[in-house]
Write a protein that binds this DNA or RNA. Sequence first.
DNA 1: TCAAAAGTGTTTAGTTTACACCCATGC
DNA 2: GCATGGGTGTAAACTAAACACTTTTGA
Lengths: 229, 229
Amino acid sequence: MSYTYEYPRPSLTVDCVIFGLDDSHELRVLLIERAHDPYADCWALPGGFVDMHEDLYSAAARELEEETGIRNVFIEQLYTFGAPKRDPRGRVVSVAYYALVNLKDHPVTAASDAKRAEWFKTKELPKLAFDHQLIMDTAIERLTTKIRYQPIGFELLPEKFTLSQLRELYETILGKALNKRNFRSKIMSMDILEQVEQQKDVPHRPAYLYRFNKKKYAQLTKEGFVFEI
Amino acid sequence: MSYTYEYPRPSLTVDCVIFGLDDSHELRVLLIERAHDPYADCWALPGGFVDMHEDLYSAAARELEEETGIRNVFIEQLYTFGAPKRDPRGRVVSVAYYALVNLKDHPVTAASDAKRAEWFKTKELPKLAFDHQLIMDTAIERLTTKIRYQPIGFELLPEKFTLSQLRELYETILGKALNKRNFRSKIMSMDILEQVEQQKDVPHRPAYLYRFNKKKYAQLTKEGFVFEI
DNA sequence: TCAAAAGTGTTTAGTTTACACCCATGC
DNA sequence: GCATGGGTGTAAACTAAACACTTTTGA
């Protein structure tokens, strides 16, 4: 089977930068090891070709699941990379997405076609295939700026979390210490968290667990509320 | 001449949303009237197919110049639209860009191939071709959020401008009145404007003209300064 | 009773908002 | 001199930062 067109067309792919936070509050990304040339055995972002009848978001979600088993997570379009020589096979334009996941829910799984997958610290990345380092840099930049103005940080935590966990998340991604008292006051005054229960069996005063209230946030946003950390 | 591939490929286009401010401080966009089907005679964003050897930004800049004569202006990637049925001719994925121009420098010019071009108020848009209304909405949303955190507003003004012009620009785009005194204090305390000269022949106290100092801004940004209105 | 982390009260410093006034020009 | 927009001083209100304290639990 082959397909013929009057004018040449680039290939279209999607690539995903998947972020997670590890136990020691370090930002990590999930990479896969390529099985085939070009860049065989090189670490790369999961991704692949866009099918003719699926939209771009679906393509990103499908590739994410096929190559890492991850599904039902936050995915958002990042940027489209189209430098003419970014792929040695010819003209390939890639629509990059980034995903935020709770790392604990997604331990390293052998990917579908026997390639390895591994969570790397963003500060200790191996050499990446294609222009994936550029995509990575763009994604990290986007994450660090966006997390201040949009409540997307919750996507990196379990559904129920403590305020300390949330604060530590922001400390990690923003790269600076935040005052405990002031962080609490600020986040609580926003009125977008729902208290659900208390920690149990911890050797210290049990913390309350909270859940991000999406509906409340949507409502407040409509009324002019602006999220900002 | 024809081109044959093993797998089907979508067509790849770029589209441009071009913003300008008119004399009465209204936000406008430059649209062109389509000469051919689909959507013949319908208003649409300037755009066209990406050539095989040009990068995406160059394609956007080229199409902008070919269809409107505008060149050397601020252009930035917006978002990539790829819904399977967005174009009745088949699968067409479009990388959208937005441009900011000083409207006075670009009066309505007959576009290269005899189509009409016209500056429309964003609040009074005609029915647009394809999914261009969606692209437009996305661009307006991006402009209004981005202008608060990045010094891109200057791109809509002449090179030399008064503080009143700048304030009125923000009032237009943010859709609310800003206190004259406080706006001045804020913008001047940023130390990113360079005073160049004074107005002449105005029937009131002449205002100072300023120029945005890109170098200074870059320097300050490196030192941790964050622009915000 | 001790260690560990959760959670609170309050002062201080800094920033933003609001309002009222004076200034320079052309006609 | 008057209409028009340019430009300034400052008090009050609000918000963020800093710091020291009390609480609750398991071991």
